[in-house]
Protein backbone atom coordinates (compact mmCIF):
# COMPACT_ATOMS: atom_id res chain seq x y z
CA UNK A 1 0.00 0.00 0.00
CA UNK A 2 2.86 2.34 0.86
CA UNK A 3 4.08 1.70 -2.68
CA UNK A 4 0.74 2.71 -4.17
CA UNK A 5 0.80 5.82 -2.02
CA UNK A 6 4.30 6.80 -3.07
CA UNK A 7 3.42 6.26 -6.72
CA UNK A 8 0.30 8.36 -6.21
CA UNK A 9 2.34 11.20 -4.76
CA UNK A 10 5.06 10.96 -7.37
CA UNK A 11 2.51 11.18 -10.16
CA UNK A 12 0.14 13.55 -8.37
CA UNK A 13 2.48 16.41 -7.55
CA UNK A 14 3.89 17.01 -11.07
CA UNK A 15 0.40 16.56 -12.46
CA UNK A 16 -0.96 19.22 -10.11
CA UNK A 17 1.94 21.53 -10.91
CA UNK A 18 1.76 21.34 -14.73
CA UNK A 19 -1.92 22.40 -14.80
CA UNK A 20 -1.97 26.04 -15.98
CA UNK A 21 -3.87 27.26 -12.94
CA UNK A 22 -3.26 30.98 -13.03
CA UNK A 23 -3.64 33.66 -15.66
CA UNK A 24 -0.35 35.32 -16.66
CA UNK A 25 1.43 36.68 -13.59
CA UNK A 26 1.26 40.41 -14.16
CA UNK A 27 2.75 41.71 -10.91
CA UNK A 28 5.38 40.91 -8.32
CA UNK A 29 2.52 40.09 -5.95
CA UNK A 30 1.07 37.62 -8.43
CA UNK A 31 4.46 35.98 -8.79
CA UNK A 32 4.78 35.40 -5.02
CA UNK A 33 1.23 34.08 -4.79
CA UNK A 34 1.78 31.61 -7.61
CA UNK A 35 4.79 30.18 -5.82
CA UNK A 36 2.77 30.02 -2.60
CA UNK A 37 0.12 28.05 -4.44
CA UNK A 38 2.69 25.62 -5.80
CA UNK A 39 3.90 25.01 -2.25
CA UNK A 40 0.31 24.51 -1.09
CA UNK A 41 -0.16 21.94 -3.85
CA UNK A 42 3.03 20.10 -2.92
CA UNK A 43 1.78 19.88 0.68
CA UNK A 44 -1.81 19.04 -0.15
CA UNK A 45 -1.34 16.30 -2.74
CA UNK A 46 0.34 13.88 -0.30
CA UNK A 47 -2.36 14.47 2.33
CA UNK A 48 -5.08 13.78 -0.20
CA UNK A 49 -3.27 10.78 -1.61
CA UNK A 50 -2.79 9.30 1.87
CA UNK A 51 -6.52 9.45 2.56
CA UNK A 52 -7.41 8.09 -0.88
CA UNK A 53 -4.97 5.18 -0.77
CA UNK A 54 -6.02 4.08 2.70
CA UNK A 55 -9.67 4.13 1.65
CA UNK A 56 -9.12 2.34 -1.65
CA UNK A 57 -6.72 -0.19 -0.14
CA UNK A 58 -9.16 -0.99 2.69
CA UNK A 59 -12.00 -1.35 0.22
CA UNK A 60 -9.91 -3.75 -1.82
CA UNK A 61 -8.31 -5.69 1.06
CA UNK A 62 -10.88 -5.68 3.87
CA UNK A 63 -14.15 -5.86 1.94
CA UNK A 64 -16.55 -8.49 3.26
CA UNK A 65 -15.92 -11.77 1.45
CA UNK A 66 -18.72 -14.33 0.99
CA UNK A 67 -19.21 -16.25 4.22
CA UNK A 68 -18.04 -13.36 6.44
CA UNK A 69 -21.57 -11.99 6.90
CA UNK A 70 -21.49 -12.66 10.64
CA UNK A 71 -17.78 -11.95 11.10
CA UNK A 72 -16.54 -8.96 13.11
CA UNK A 73 -13.24 -7.11 12.88
CA UNK A 74 -10.61 -7.11 15.63
CA UNK A 75 -11.70 -4.90 18.60
CA UNK A 76 -8.99 -2.23 18.29
CA UNK A 77 -9.98 0.76 20.44
CA UNK A 78 -7.09 3.06 19.64
CA UNK A 79 -3.38 3.56 19.60
CA UNK A 80 -1.98 6.55 21.43
CA UNK A 81 1.30 6.68 19.50
CA UNK A 82 -0.53 6.78 16.18
CA UNK A 83 -2.93 9.48 17.40
CA UNK A 84 -0.07 11.63 18.59
CA UNK A 85 1.59 11.28 15.19
CA UNK A 86 -1.43 12.35 13.20
CA UNK A 87 -2.02 15.26 15.52
CA UNK A 88 1.58 16.44 15.39
CA UNK A 89 2.23 16.10 11.66
CA UNK A 90 -0.63 18.38 10.51
CA UNK A 91 0.32 20.78 13.31
CA UNK A 92 3.85 21.04 11.93
CA UNK A 93 2.57 21.51 8.38
CA UNK A 94 0.18 24.21 9.60
CA UNK A 95 2.93 26.12 11.36
CA UNK A 96 5.10 25.95 8.26
CA UNK A 97 2.35 27.04 5.88
CA UNK A 98 1.17 29.92 8.07
CA UNK A 99 4.71 31.17 8.51
CA UNK A 100 5.37 31.10 4.79
CA UNK A 101 2.00 32.66 3.91
CA UNK A 102 2.71 35.43 6.42
CA UNK A 103 6.07 36.23 4.85
CA UNK A 104 4.45 36.37 1.40
CA UNK A 105 1.81 38.72 2.77
CA UNK A 106 4.46 40.97 4.27
CA UNK A 107 6.44 41.27 1.05
CA UNK A 108 3.28 41.72 -1.03
CA UNK A 109 2.09 44.60 1.13
CA UNK A 110 5.48 46.28 1.58
CA UNK A 111 5.20 50.06 1.27
CA UNK A 112 7.34 51.71 -1.42
CA UNK A 113 8.34 55.37 -0.91
CA UNK A 114 8.09 56.32 -4.60
CA UNK A 115 4.82 54.53 -5.17
CA UNK A 116 2.30 56.11 -7.55
CA UNK A 117 -1.12 56.85 -6.00
CA UNK A 118 -4.35 56.02 -7.84
CA UNK A 119 -7.70 56.82 -6.24
CA UNK A 120 -10.44 54.42 -7.28
CA UNK A 121 -14.04 55.47 -6.75
CA UNK A 122 -16.69 52.84 -7.44
CA UNK A 123 -20.43 53.24 -7.85
CA UNK A 124 -23.26 51.15 -9.25
CA UNK A 125 -21.94 50.11 -11.77
CA UNK A 126 -18.70 51.76 -12.82
CA UNK A 127 -15.09 52.41 -11.86
CA UNK A 128 -13.49 55.83 -11.81
CA UNK A 129 -9.71 56.09 -11.59
CA UNK A 130 -8.12 59.36 -10.41
CA UNK A 131 -4.43 60.27 -10.66
CA UNK A 132 -3.59 63.01 -8.14
CA UNK A 133 -1.53 65.77 -9.72
CA UNK A 134 0.48 68.60 -8.22
CA UNK A 135 -1.81 71.37 -6.92
CA UNK A 136 -4.66 69.15 -5.72
CA UNK A 137 -5.82 68.59 -9.29
CA UNK A 138 -6.68 65.08 -10.38
CA UNK A 139 -6.75 63.33 -13.71
CA UNK A 140 -9.89 61.25 -14.07
CA UNK A 141 -10.17 58.21 -16.28
CA UNK A 142 -12.62 55.36 -16.86
CA UNK A 143 -9.78 53.05 -17.90
CA UNK A 144 -6.78 52.26 -15.73
CA UNK A 145 -3.34 53.03 -17.22
CA UNK A 146 -0.27 51.89 -15.30
CA UNK A 147 3.45 52.18 -16.03
CA UNK A 148 5.30 48.88 -16.03
CA UNK A 149 7.55 48.22 -13.03
CA UNK A 150 6.35 51.15 -10.90
CA UNK A 151 4.79 50.31 -7.50
CA UNK A 152 1.19 51.56 -7.29
CA UNK A 153 -0.98 52.31 -4.25
CA UNK A 154 -4.72 52.12 -4.88
CA UNK A 155 -7.02 53.97 -2.51
CA UNK A 156 -10.49 52.47 -2.95
CA UNK A 157 -13.80 53.83 -1.87
CA UNK A 158 -17.44 53.53 -2.86
CA UNK A 159 -20.30 56.00 -2.98
CA UNK A 160 -23.20 53.56 -2.69
CA UNK A 161 -22.90 49.86 -1.82
CA UNK A 162 -19.84 47.64 -1.35
CA UNK A 163 -17.91 47.00 -4.54
CA UNK A 164 -14.55 45.41 -5.13
CA UNK A 165 -11.45 45.81 -7.28
CA UNK A 166 -9.84 42.73 -8.77
CA UNK A 167 -7.38 42.25 -11.61
CA UNK A 168 -6.81 38.50 -12.00
CA UNK A 169 -3.38 39.02 -13.56
CA UNK A 170 -2.32 41.09 -10.54
CA UNK A 171 -3.65 38.50 -8.05
CA UNK A 172 -4.69 41.38 -5.80
CA UNK A 173 -8.20 42.17 -4.69
CA UNK A 174 -9.91 44.44 -2.18
CA UNK A 175 -13.39 45.67 -1.41
CA UNK A 176 -14.38 49.30 -1.96
CA UNK A 177 -16.43 50.14 1.11
CA UNK A 178 -18.75 53.16 1.38
CA UNK A 179 -17.47 55.62 3.96
CA UNK A 180 -14.07 53.96 4.21
CA UNK A 181 -10.89 54.26 2.17
CA UNK A 182 -9.10 50.94 1.72
CA UNK A 183 -5.62 50.46 0.37
CA UNK A 184 -4.14 47.80 -1.90
CA UNK A 185 -0.63 47.69 -3.41
CA UNK A 186 0.40 46.32 -6.78
CA UNK A 187 3.61 46.44 -8.80
CA UNK A 188 2.72 45.63 -12.43
CA UNK A 189 5.51 43.77 -14.20
CA UNK A 190 4.04 42.65 -17.50
CA UNK A 191 2.89 44.80 -20.42
CA UNK A 192 -0.62 44.06 -21.61
CA UNK A 193 -4.36 44.71 -21.35
CA UNK A 194 -6.30 43.09 -18.55
CA UNK A 195 -9.82 43.31 -17.12
CA UNK A 196 -10.53 44.94 -13.77
CA UNK A 197 -13.59 43.30 -12.26
CA UNK A 198 -15.95 44.12 -9.45
CA UNK A 199 -16.05 40.93 -7.41
CA UNK A 200 -18.46 41.97 -4.67
CA UNK A 201 -22.13 41.47 -5.47
CA UNK A 202 -23.47 45.00 -5.87
CA UNK A 203 -26.77 44.63 -7.67
CA UNK A 204 -28.15 43.96 -11.11
CA UNK A 205 -25.17 45.42 -12.96
CA UNK A 206 -22.59 43.47 -10.98
CA UNK A 207 -21.81 40.97 -13.74
CA UNK A 208 -20.95 43.73 -16.17
CA UNK A 209 -19.10 46.05 -13.79
CA UNK A 210 -15.66 45.90 -15.40
CA UNK A 211 -12.95 48.28 -16.53
CA UNK A 212 -9.99 48.03 -18.88
CA UNK A 213 -6.48 47.91 -17.41
CA UNK A 214 -3.53 48.84 -19.63
CA UNK A 215 -0.03 48.22 -18.35
CA UNK A 216 2.25 50.26 -20.62
CA UNK A 217 5.88 51.36 -20.73
CA UNK A 218 6.72 54.35 -18.48
CA UNK A 219 7.19 56.57 -21.56
CA UNK A 220 3.83 55.69 -23.09
CA UNK A 221 2.31 56.25 -19.69
CA UNK A 222 3.83 59.73 -19.42
CA UNK A 223 2.57 60.71 -22.86
CA UNK A 224 -0.88 59.36 -22.01
CA UNK A 225 -0.89 61.33 -18.78
CA UNK A 226 0.08 64.54 -20.57
CA UNK A 227 -2.78 64.21 -23.02
CA UNK A 228 -5.30 64.04 -20.18
CA UNK A 229 -6.57 67.37 -18.87
CA UNK A 230 -6.73 67.69 -15.09
CA UNK A 231 -10.19 68.22 -13.64
CA UNK A 232 -11.13 69.26 -10.14
CA UNK A 233 -10.90 66.64 -7.39
CA UNK A 234 -13.34 63.78 -7.99
CA UNK A 235 -16.34 63.28 -5.74
CA UNK A 236 -14.61 60.78 -3.48
CA UNK A 237 -16.78 60.01 -0.49
CA UNK A 238 -19.36 62.58 -1.51
CA UNK A 239 -22.45 60.48 -2.05
CA UNK A 240 -25.27 61.16 -4.45
CA UNK A 241 -28.22 62.68 -2.55
CA UNK A 242 -29.53 60.16 -0.02
CA UNK A 243 -26.96 57.52 -0.96
CA UNK A 244 -28.20 55.14 1.68
CA UNK A 245 -31.47 54.92 -0.17
CA UNK A 246 -30.14 54.22 -3.68
CA UNK A 247 -32.23 51.74 -5.56
CA UNK A 248 -35.88 51.30 -4.82
CA UNK A 249 -36.35 51.07 -1.08
CA UNK A 250 -39.55 49.89 0.52
CA UNK A 251 -41.46 52.82 1.92
CA UNK A 252 -41.00 51.32 5.36
CA UNK A 253 -43.44 51.23 8.21
CA UNK A 254 -43.06 54.90 8.99
CA UNK A 255 -42.77 55.85 5.36
CA UNK A 256 -39.80 57.12 3.40
CA UNK A 257 -41.04 60.67 3.77
CA UNK A 258 -39.20 61.48 6.98
CA UNK A 259 -36.15 59.32 6.24
CA UNK A 260 -32.96 60.90 7.57
Amino acid sequence: MVVIGVIGVVIGIPLALVIPWFPADGSTQAHNIHTLYDVLLIVSVPIFVVVETVVLYSVWKFRMKPGEEEKDGPPIHGNTRLEVVWTALPAILIVGLCGYAYSVLRSNEKTHPGAMVVNVTERQFAFQFAYPQSGGKQILSAALYLPQGRPVVFHLTSVDVIHSFFVPEFSEKLDAVPGVTTTVRVTPTRLGNYPAECTELCGAGHSLMRAAVHVVTPTTFRTWLIHQKPNGPPPIGTPPPNASQTGTTPGGITGGSNAG
Partner: peptide, 26 residues
Protein backbone atom coordinates in the same frame (compact mmCIF):
# COMPACT_ATOMS: atom_id res chain seq x y z
CA UNK B 1 -8.52 28.82 10.79
CA UNK B 2 -5.63 26.61 9.84
CA UNK B 3 -5.56 25.04 13.30
CA UNK B 4 -9.07 23.68 12.75
CA UNK B 5 -7.49 21.30 10.27
CA UNK B 6 -5.93 19.46 13.22
CA UNK B 7 -9.06 18.27 15.09
CA UNK B 8 -10.75 17.62 11.76
CA UNK B 9 -7.74 15.65 10.65
CA UNK B 10 -7.89 13.60 13.83
CA UNK B 11 -11.42 12.61 12.91
CA UNK B 12 -10.59 11.77 9.29
CA UNK B 13 -7.58 9.65 10.30
CA UNK B 14 -9.50 7.93 13.09
CA UNK B 15 -12.19 6.92 10.59
CA UNK B 16 -9.49 5.58 8.30
CA UNK B 17 -8.05 3.59 11.18
CA UNK B 18 -11.53 2.27 11.93
CA UNK B 19 -11.75 0.91 8.38
CA UNK B 20 -8.36 -0.74 8.78
CA UNK B 21 -8.61 -4.54 9.16
CA UNK B 22 -12.38 -4.33 9.52
CA UNK B 23 -14.95 -6.36 7.60
CA UNK B 24 -16.30 -3.70 5.27
CA UNK B 25 -19.93 -4.11 4.22
CA UNK B 26 -19.86 -1.94 1.08
Amino acid sequence: TAIIAIPTGIKIFSWLATLWRGVLHL
